[in-house]
């Protein structure tokens, strides 16, 4: 079991990192031939950084839209973010002070995350428009995440898992030493689903994470008159025709 999980996590990490890197490289290499920021848009680079910050941290555009989606979506993502930070304690020794300080919040964040996810799932099932656009994978993602959150909370509140042992396993794995993992049902489920998520990340809609940073309607400076913007392929076409 420990060996299986060790290999699983090594593979999952590789797939996640390499898969994501390939996508990021693809996005970065693909030119944006025209200036298409959704206006009113910032006219300076600083303004763009702020716009992206608001978009990534507060989900500004979603906020302009449906408040319920925003609320559930934001709860889930913020919760997930804090929970991820909290989990850093499994990978660092000694645990950094800020990470120690957020430990208690991390637990509430776990609740927020699951509640947000359930809200999103309910919405996906009951709002006819959202149901119409959903593929089976869209439901499965929510279920995977709900079970990850749920199994995580179980370990905290129902069947306590030997977290020290888990920590040793992962710290060891980071040095490619395969230790032993406590065989608790919630933990096994939790870790399996997390590995699954990591494996599927680069092939799925979770690509919205790098996507937002590369979205031309959000990351472009609104200055087409001031500065000529031209893509390499467009330039080549121009030279050929002149």
């Amino acid at each position: 079991m420990s060996l299986f999980y060790a290999l699983l996590f090594i593979v999952a990490t590789l797939v996640l990192v390499i898969g994501l890197a390939r996508k990021i490289i693809q996005y970065a290499r693909t030119p944006a031939p025209l200036k298409i920021p959704t206006t009113p848009a910032p006219v300076t680079q600083t303004g763009v950084v702020l716009r992206l910050f608001r978009e990534v941290v507060f989900f500004e555009s979603l906020f302009k839209s449906t408040k319920w989606t925003w609320l559930f979506g934001w709860m889930f993502h913020l919760g997930l973010f804090l929970v991820l930070l909290r989990h850093l304690r499994y990978f660092t020794d000694p645990v950094w002070l800020p990470i120690q300080l957020i430990q208690p919040f991390g637990v509430y964040a776990g609740y927020a995350m699951v509640i947000g996810l359930i809200g999103l799932l309910v919405r996906r099932i009951f709002v006819d428009r959202v149901r119409y656009i959903s593929a089976p994978s869209d439901f499965l993602w929510l279920l995977i995440l709900i079970f990850i959150g749920f199994s995580g909370l179980m370990m905290k509140f129902v069947v306590h898992t030997d977290v020290v042992m888990v920590k040793q396993f992962f710290i060891g794995l980071m040095g490619l030493n395969i230790g032993t993992l406590p065989v608790d049902f919630p933990l096994i489920v939790h870790l399996f689903l997390v590995a699954l998520l990591m494996l599927l990340f680069p092939f799925s809609k979770l690509l919205h994470l790098p996507g937002i940073f590369f979205s031309p309607t959000r990351n472009q400076v609104d200055n087409p008159r001031e500065k000529r913007h031209i893509a390499p392929w467009a330039k080549a076409m121009e030279e050929q025709q002149n």
């Binding site: 693809q26 693909t30 944006a32 959202v130 809609k205 690509l207 996507g211 979205s215």
Partner: peptide, 24 residues
Amino acid sequence: LRSRYRSLQVFLDSCVKCGSCTDK
């Protein structure tokens, strides 16, 4: 087109089917 337009490539990948645009 997806190799020449970043918008197209990123937009095809990134939609999470959140439904925010559905009634717009």
